[in-house]
Design a protein around this nucleic acid. Structure first.
Lengths: 201, 201, 201, 201
DNA sequence: CATGAATGAGTCTTCATTCAT
DNA sequence: TATGAATGAAGACTCATTCAT
């Protein structure tokens, strides 16, 4: 006989997760203490441990949230009915990045970078990040396939390899654009688009 | 009259730094303890603190080493006498990345990612990373200028913006190629080159 | 809804403080380690740090306790209804010193001396000691005023200056009587009384 | 065949001692590190250890110096040919205290207090302090004897007990006058003199 | 004798986690 | 379930002392 509804549990988890994401954005995974999270969540130590098995579990949940938020947007483009172009898909993806960053008060890009870093030492985090990259890679391949079908791209290319290069444009924007504030979205998109169109030996 | 030469001091610093880089590659900055570094360096606690003011100072030295190792290669290309092409410069840069990764037993890419992560919370590390990005960006702009002069690239583009996109290709390769082992250098370079040559609207 | 009452908190603080005073009496402020205090208090490191912010805070609390225990007795004499004499007031004060020393197993005089010593380097401890001296000085002035009013002392003296000399008799007894065991209370009081009564040019 | 003269050795010891006294005045015995002393002395670690057996030995030498500087002045008065009065002797003693304090840049009173504090835990320091107190006490007794002989003091008093009270006036002045700056020499002397002359029941 | 780099036990403090209430 | 006081192992850093040069 559960005294609390599943909705209540989910809301509590969300409350803790949101607080923890804020902390991690500020201090990184390993400089964020459980005491910080407990304080920020407004709950008690016991409560937090009632919803997450411990700090590693919390880290994994945060990492999952941070890197698992992107695939859908690109998938919508790749599978939508409008003609597909690479610059168009890139714009949609990076606008989503901007939106996520703004919605989380700037936390999302920082937590994503922390997740990459943590992936080098925690195999479970690595699996989460890897899975997300694979998903986005697959969608980029579909975007390229559609672009050929829609006539915006010449056929005969190695789409999986090209998708790797395209995939790089997102972390590159996260770092240069959102972490270091060196470039804004429109300039970055213009640079990407001009680069794609340039004939370069 | 010092009994130890400045060379000896430098060698000791290097010994500590190398040990610390190995530790950080394995565990990240904040899961690496000073005890780990001390153990790995083969020196005593006091000795390590004689060469570095404390953990933050050590972290900054590691970050500097990790991100400060790239600009020269690209600069050599941009300023050399051979005709400059974007794919050629990219190959040179990424081959240098591979070489650094191999020379450090795979530590370099991981430490670089940790440095990006740390840059979000330590302003001094941020300055180091930012400076390095700026330097590489400037070189990419020179590469693009030279490519136009050498006839390999149409004029009239926004080179600084394009350089931002080109800059993204390196961290993207670090993550997908060296951290996650999803793509090898040749495939990645082919993907990049095909993407650059493709006319894409 | 706190599970522990404020009384419980106060009792714990007292427990730690008492243990720490014992340690400091034996070893002084800076040869007393937090580990000593933790061991003597019977609590854990974390618990002690939950009640005191750190070693400096503990030192200040100890100093406050050690030097803040004297003023009341003398004030009672100065403001009581019985005729006031200087020797009487002095006896009351030094008997209180003896009582405090005995109650604390000899700790009080030693901790007081450590507090004077610490006052030369910690401005907060200095403030505590200074405040206590000022309080006792003020009471001595009142004692002298009352002694004149009660006819036991000739008028026309510089009471604040005399109070400085009277104030010296307490630390002098602490050192000679309680720290070094060179003189007992009755002998010391007799010496003081004879000195006061002597006409001395 | 000593390569250095005894004078050279003595000068070196003095150099170290003076540096150490400055350090101890600032930080107390146990917050003064050997590194501080080494730095302040301008010598090397090895040199300092060549002249003092270790920190405890240095502490004892400092304590000895700090508390062993007073007896002579008072002895000169007690044994001189001028008529002896208690206020006169007290003035001579406290003027000597002032002079020592000034000569040492204010270090002497602070180091003296640190020595009392240290005497509660180091039996060797205690012996040094005790011996000095005994010496000064003996001189005060002689002063009182002479004062009676010279007609300035009524006979029949318990001179050893009175000497205890008189002895207290010096540490009291050190604390109130020199450590806490609450009273100047002339005011303090006036207070002492008025107190001695007052008929007090 | 003098030097000062090196040592390593010891110090203060933190923090993930538990459990009595 | 919820609380938050308590735990104690582990962390960063210090410092008295030594000894090869």
């Amino acid at each position: 006989m559960p005294r609390v509804t599943p909705e209540h549990r989910a809301a509590r988890r969300e409350q803790i997760l949101a607080a923890a994401i804020g902390c991690v954005a500020r201090e990184g995974f390993h400089k964020t203490t459980m005491a910080h999270v407990i304080e920020a969540s407004g709950l008690s130590a016991g409560a937090v441990y009632g919803y997450f098995d411990g700090k590693p579990a919390l880290i994994r949940a945060i990492a999952e949230r941070a890197v698992g938020s992107l695939g859908e947007t690109l998938a919508d483009i790749a599978d939508g009915s409008d003609p597909v172009t690479v610059p168009g898909a890139l714009r949609a993806l990076l606008e989503r990045v901007e939106q996520l960053a703004d919605e989380t008060g700037g936390a999302f890009p920082k937590v994503a970078v922390h997740a990459w870093s943590e992936a080098t030492r925690d195999e479970e985090v690595a699996a989460v990040v890897r899975e997300n990259i694979d998903r986005v890679h697959a969608v980029w391949v579909r975007v390229l396939d559609r672009a050929v079908a829609d006539g915006g791209l010449a056929p005969g290319h190695d789409h999986p390899a090209m998708a790797r290069a395209l995939l790089s444009l997102m972390p590159g924007f996260l770092l240069q654009g959102r972490i270091f504030g060196m470039v804004d979205l429109e300039t970055y998109l213009r640079g990407c688009t001009e680069l794609l169109g340039a004939t370069s030996r």
